[in-house]
Amino acid sequence: MRDDLDASAPKDAVAAQLFPPWATLAARIALVSLVVLPLGLLGLLMTLQYTPYITGQSITPDQPVPFSHEHHVGGLGIECRYCHSSVETSRFAGLPPTHTCMTCHSQLWTNAAMLEPVRRSLAEGRPIRWRRVNELPDYAYFDHSVHVRNGVGCTSCHGPVDTMPLMRQAAPLTMGWCLDCHRNPAPHLRPESEIFAGHWAPPPGQEARGAELVRHYGIRTEHLADCSVCHR
């Protein structure tokens, strides 16, 4: 054995080495990658969860009728509750039945092609199939009425709806986003008269006012971030 090696050595010294010179570097890179790549992949997957691609934030789904909140709310001044009439009493804010659309459109824009699905819906007695803009997973319990009756205004979650020609999801609707407010609601709370205001920004004295509103609405902040508040 030993003789064989010695015999071949003068002929081809490099071939006798089992690993080429760059193998050490390759092994180091491989060892580092073994740690960095899985961690990086995990990090990427976790970051992806918060991108609009996954959360749906800022996505404007195509609708059967291009309904404009900008026109109806911003332009005409129609109040939120004119159409979303169960928002104060129910879990669900209420998607208006075709009857509500036709309250005005039986007389206005009666031949508009854009409104053909609305007229057909009324004639056939089949609801319009709007596509959901703000959708929560089924394991999260959410109730509109408890929010609007305790100082959380529409635009806090839905954004400045009266400037949206087409409806888009304004908030990320992630659990972290919900908890931001559930852990510290005071900066977002409004008095009853401002809940349905189209544009709202915290006024200068919001810090003191928010704490006062927490007392006013009787919000038990110590239980607001309990699991069972939203997962029941």
Binding site: R91, F92, L95, P127, P137, D138, Y139
Partner: peptide, 11 residues
């Protein structure tokens, strides 16, 4: 299946 359970939501 947790996010989209086999039940009918409102509307």
């Amino acid at each position: 299946e947790m996010a989209q359970q086999r039940k009918l939501g409102t509307h």
